[in-house]
Structure formats: C-alpha cells, structure tokens
C-alpha cells in the first residue's frame, strides 16, 4: 500500500505538473492561449520546424552530451578499476566527493578562468615563452567545438561516475565474477570486455541516461562558455522565450515540446535497449 501511495504521489507531484505544463505549451504554441494570442494557428510550429535552428541545436547538444559522456565514462571506468584500493581510502574518497558539490555555474567560471585567452593557462604559456600574446593562445572557451563546455561537464561527471562504478563493483561482487572468469581461462582483457565493463555500465545505465539528458539541457555552462551560433538547447529556448519580441513566445513553447519529446524518445530508446540487453 505504501509503495502504491508513493507511486501515486510521484505521479501527482512530478508527472502531472509536467503533463499540465506540456499541455499549456501545446496550447500556447498553437495560438490557443497567451496574452497576445490571436487564435488557432500552425504558423509557429511551421516556423520552428522549417527554421532549422532547433534541429541544429538538438544535434549540437546531443553531440556535446555524447562527447562529455564518452570521455567521462572512460576515465571513470579506468579510475574505478585501476585504483580500487586507493578509492577505499578516506582522503581519496573525500577528494572525489569534493567536485560533486560544485554548482555548474561555479565550475563554468573556473573553466573560464583557466582556459580563456586571459586565463591562467594562457598566462603560464606566455610566461614560459610558448605564446607571444593572449590572442595566440588557442580558443578553448566560447569556441564552436565546445571544448570548454565538454571539459566542464567532464570535471563534474568523472568523480560521480568513479564513485558510482566503485560502489557497483563492490555491491555486485564483481571481484568474485572476475575470479571465476579467470579460473575458466579468460584473459584479464576478455574479463573486462565481456563481464566487468558491461555489468558496470548496465547497472549504471539510469544514471548515464540522466547525465546525458542533464548535459543536453544544461544552461549556465553553455551560457558562459558557449558560442552565439550554434547554441545548445536551453540558451536557444530561453533566448526565444525572453527576448524583446513577445510574439516569439509561442515558438519557444513549440521548441520546449520538441525538446521534451526528444528526451522521452531517448529514455524509451535506452530503456528498450537495456531490456533487450537484459533478456
């Protein structure tokens, strides 16, 4: 009974408000509500779909999220499997937990201070005679390759996934499975490739998907470290939503719905893949 009540509460507190917001956005984007609404129209949807900005932004955000996720997971797997003993020590655990408490905007600011042409690395490079001026320092922030954005997300994600993988490794008794695999004649590489890494990734799949969605929807980090074009989803939508021309608001609502549907599609896709994998 308790669990049923919890699910009902979850639906009421989380799902229902999102559904109401989505319905409101749908009505807004179809011109059926809003202070400046002039009645039913598909113009805003046509504008958003044909304009192309939302699709570029969606792909750009996905590419950034996949890059950050790929690098973070690789590094976290390496750390959690290579330095198991060190991770059990209090100091290491403390050091790993430290970045987890850093707000995104602070992390973005740190990255900016480090990597901007007037930042610390640039100054060190100038002091060592590696560059003749700030302008010569490679563009690592506000660059279209989103290097600064990816680095910031990696810094925030690696400790989290390292701790997560380490906990899964211990709770799932992966060491025993490794032992069995080795006894049956597998090499260490085979054991890692076939047993350990798939198991860790599968158990962490929910967190990985959440991280992917979190990076795709991040706002402060691309706002500080991104470029004016292309833009990640949140800055693009926020710009449309709050810009000078109030008649752009319905388009922002249409974009929000496309984003929401994309997130649901990613969730369903991963859920299906995970189940297939499990079966």
């Amino acid at each position: 009974m308790k669990s049923k009540l919890s699910i009902a509460l979850f639906l009421c507190i989380i799902v229902v408000p999102i559904m109401i917001s989505a319905a409101y956005s749908l009505l807004y984007s179809l011109g059926l509500t809003g202070l400046l609404s002039q009645g039913w129209t598909l113009t805003y949807w046509q504008q958003v779909v044909t304009d192309g900005n939302i699709w570029i932004s969606l792909l750009y955000s996905l590419a950034i999220a996949l890059s950050a996720m790929g690098i973070s997971l690789t590094a976290a797997l390496y750390l959690s499997l290579r330095h198991k003993a060190a991770l059990q020590q209090k100091t290491t655990a403390y050091l790993l937990f430290l970045p987890l408490g850093i707000p995104a905007v602070v992390a973005a600011f740190f990255t900016y201070q480090m990597l901007a042409p007037s930042g610390l690395l640039s100054r060190v490079s100038y002091a060592w005679g590696l560059s003749e001026s700030a302008a010569q320092f490679p563009s690592l922030v506000n660059d279209s390759l989103a290097i600064g954005i990816v680095i910031t997300h990696i810094i925030l994600a690696i400790p989290y996934f390292t701790v997560l993988f380490n906990n899964i490794y211990l709770s799932e008794n992966v060491a025993d499975l490794e032992q069995v695999s080795n006894n049956l004649g597998s090499t260490r590489r085979q054991t890692l490739r076939v047993i350990v890494i798939p198991l860790l990734l599968k158990r962490a799949m929910a967190s990985i998907v959440m991280f992917l969605i979190f990076v795709m929807g991040s706002y402060e980090i691309p706002l500080l470290l991104g470029v004016s074009d292309p833009r990640m989803l949140s800055p693009l939508i926020a710009d449309k939503m709050f810009r000078f021309d109030l008649t752009d608001k319905p388009e922002a609502h249409a974009m929000l719905l496309i984003y929401l549907l994309s997130v649901i599609a990613i969730n369903l896709f991963v859920l299906k893949r995970t189940r297939l994998y499990a079966s």
Binding site: K4, L5, I7, A8, L11, C12
Partner: peptide, 14 residues
Amino acid sequence: APVATALYMNMKKY
C-alpha cells in the same frame, strides 16, 4: 495496474 489502482483510490482525495 497498481498505479492505476492507487490513482483511483486517491482520485477523490486529490
């Protein structure tokens, strides 16, 4: 099923 049941049971209250 349990979610729907729980929702139904709580519907009036909500």
